[in-house]
Amino acid sequence: MKTMTSVIRLGLTRGWIEFWMNALSLQGLVGLFLAPTILLALLWMFRVREVEGVSFALLMLPGFLALQLTQEGLMGVANKLAFDREDGTLLRAKALPQGMPAYLIARVVVIVLSAFVSLMLVIIPGLFIVPSLATVGVAGFVTLVWVLALGFLALAPIGAVIGAIVKSPSGAVGLSILPMGIMIAISGIFYPLKTLPVISEIFPVYWIGLGLRSALLPEMAAAVEIGGTWRPLETALVLAAWAAAGLLLAPGFLRRMARRASGSEMEAGRRRYTQS
């Protein structure tokens, strides 16, 4: 029990320190602000256009948020894990007593904080650019929060599995960008819904997009969705199922990754890096 609390405290401390180190570094700042800045610029350009009485910028926003979340949850997680393995961060954690659980807690802290901040960087300025966003009300914001949280839980374990099985960070990008691209392409977050293949309803990104639209768009916009409703129950169930499956599956992959981490693997990474 005593070690348990000490592990949690170490993990939280480590995560907090690393979040700020990253956030305050040049690379971290660029990474954190680049995507939100582009998205906000797009919102700004379309702020006065309207489609059937609804602000075009508001229509774009759920797609942007879904994109941000997918990027952070899937590629961000996969990439970070692959990097930590290649540069020996993971191995150092393994060499410490209780280092591995503390490392994983710290990673969760960093990933959740980064995702939260990057979403806030879109949502908060968005309130000013898209005035109708402020009219979504309390219920809308509650929906926004649970869809983002559940959506993140559905995506991050997939990212963790990808990060655990690839050989190198470039492999992580390669392996996560493909499913990510496909899921986004067929998710309906940017394309007209009528042409969607049915298969898109299997993947979490479609439901994240739907949930976010239900949170932010006026009630009448549901008319163009499949079945003409927001299907909040189905959204919650599908995302929860993905989250549950991921959280059951990911620890095994992470354990395998931890078990295999060794000095020779890191040395191979170094050689790959210095030769390329």
Binding site: K2, T3, L10, T13, S25, G88, L91, R92
Partner: peptide, 29 residues
């Protein structure tokens, strides 16, 4: 104790802070 060969890990940490932090893992033992 294991002496690993670092090359890029924990590069943003400051030396003292890293040693302080790693030390804490051993306190319970």
């Amino acid at each position: 104790g294991i002496v690993l060969q670092s090359w890029r890990d924990h590069s943003a940490w400051r030396v003292r802070k890293l040693l302080d932090h790693f030390g804490k893992y051993f306190g319970p033992y």
